[in-house]
Write a protein that binds this DNA or RNA. Structure first.
Lengths: 184, 184
DNA sequence: TTGCAGACCTGTATC
DNA sequence: TGATACAGGTCTGCA
């Protein structure tokens, strides 16, 4: 019951990260995040109807889950773990992350439906997972609309970091953060 | 782990009350209970589909739970407590009673589905909670069909104490039992 | 294997 | 409006 990198947040201490994020600067948060935080892409997932429906969960493709958010075998089925992310405006999101034996799947459950609702995500939209290039404990979650042209729409109605992926796919998962996030 | 009024029954000592009731008279047990045990109504609840469905639990409205079956704060989330009741034929029923933090609800769990099955309770039927007027440690659980006319059906297919509530609602929770049942 | 028990979660209604 | 109650739902361990 310990995260290698301090991710096993308790259910208490709620809105803390949110407040911290608020205290940073006077820029629009979006600008700030876009220009000042060095991030590397981990993976992205096009949302299925179930991911945005009433099941209130996001299935994380096993390959990515085991690479970037590995649960240490023995305790996987335990209480569940919280993964904290920052979104495009610096807002903190915390999701329960666990492995479902019944479906052999890694899922984000608690908190996910709120994210879907606030961002108005729909099937086909894409969620992006990133982390800080230097501080591997800082994770970021972004998204873009399914119809947003990947390169052109920088400030258009695209979404959070919709232009983030104008880089090369080969750039995924590189950078100084070689340490693997270990949970449990 | 002690009830202020001796409610922490053990799993043993089964059919005792039933045998005692048998030794009393030649009346039907139902009649016997009706006429000889001074009870006061605590509250009643119309059963929801969930209360009688496969969730195997009865949600007890918070107002009533906290008034009549208060769990001492600190230990509420503990192992759970047993509440013992007698039904309309003197049969003893024991239910696990606990508080669910996630839904902020008081529930009867273990044992409840057996009661539902034996009494053939359905959504809309009403369960009645009473206690002995003088001996606050004796709790009673009754029920009546949703379509049973409250006053008239004394011996009809009504159910356990279906006519109990022909009294005034203002009579609820009165009597000599002023001590509050304290659990944990 | 199935069902129960326990814990957890969420949308809706309501205050 | 924000907070609360709870009906209805989920998954998991266990018997």
């Amino acid at each position: 019951m310990n995260t290698a990198l301090g991710f096993n947040l308790n259910e208490e201490e709620e809105e803390l990260d949110e407040q911290l994020a608020d205290e940073r600067e006077n820029h629009s948060k979006e600008e700030l995040q876009e220009h000042e935080i060095p991030k590397e892409a981990l993976f992205e997932k096009p949302l299925t109807p179930s991911d945005v429906g009433k099941l209130n969960r996001l299935v994380i493709p096993k390959q990515h889950a085991e690479k970037y958010f590995p649960l240490n075998g023995g305790d996987s089925g335990e209480k569940g773990f919280l993964l904290g992310f920052e979104d495009e405006v610096g807002k903190s999101w915390r999701f329960r992350y666990s492995y479902w034996n019944s479906s052999q799947s890694y899922v984000l459950t608690k908190g996910w439906s709120r994210f879907v609702k606030e961002k108005r995500l729909d099937a086909g939209d894409i969620v992006l997972f990133q982390r800080h290039r230097l501080d591997c404990t800082r994770l970021f979650i972004g998204w873009r609309r399914k119809n947003a042209a990947p390169p052109a729409s920088v400030a258009g109605g695209g979404g959070g970091w919709s232009h983030f992926y104008s880089g090369h796919p080969s750039d995924l998962g590189t950078g100084a953060c070689h340490a693997i996030l270990e949970i449990a």
